[in-house]
Simulated scan of single mutants.
Amino acid sequence: MNGVPKAPLYLGLAGLVPFVWGALTYLNSDLSAWGAQTFGPRFVGPYVQLFYGSVILSFMSGVLWGFATKTSGSKAALCYLLSVLPALWAFAMTGGGPVNAGTNLMYGFAGLLLLDALFSYWRLTPVWWMRLRILLTAVVLASLAVGVYL
């Protein structure tokens, strides 16, 4: 992760914990039982992933909104419009059970990565942005895939 400042890198990696924890508790029933008893049932398996995933897509909408402030005119309007899509996606597409919601979150995070790339192409992001976002998105997608495909 050359060039990525330590604070965003460490905070981004810490932000992966609920996704990875959800996958681990999905795969290991003993860990899931311990986690449910210790933290509560909504903090294990797909429950933690789906709720947290919705929160993170909404958070990332705010990040993109911040990048949109770096431009003006019709390009700014387009960037603001694009920036709200991840939050709207999370709101509209995370119902219908854990597999459907997990699948839709995977599409949401893949779409977010495309928006990240577009904002990066327009030079609205830091130069290190895509290195960080590709790593984080790969781990999120792999973690969500556990609940969707296994």
Rank of each mutant, 00 (worst) to 15 (best):
S54A: 15
N28H: 11
L16A: 03
F51Y: 13
G3F: 06
I134S: 05
W129S: 10
V99K: 14
G97C: 08
S143Q: 09
G66D: 05
G45P: 06
L132C: 02
P5K: 13
V20M: 05
S83I: 02
C79W: 12
M1C: 02
F67S: 05
G53T: 07
A110S: 08
L31I: 02
V4Y: 03
K6E: 11
N100H: 13
A92H: 04
G96R: 14
L27R: 11
Y26I: 00
A138T: 10
G102V: 09
V140Y: 07
V44K: 09
T137Y: 05
V48P: 05
P5F: 11
G40A: 00
W128K: 06
I56D: 10
A68C: 04
G73S: 12
L105N: 06
T69N: 08
A92W: 04
T25I: 04
A14Q: 05
W21S: 08
S61I: 00
A92L: 07
F109G: 01
A145V: 03
S54M: 15
A110Q: 03
N100L: 15
L27F: 06
K75Y: 11
Q37G: 08
L144T: 04
G96V: 13
Y121I: 02
L150G: 14
V63A: 04
D116I: 02
W89G: 03
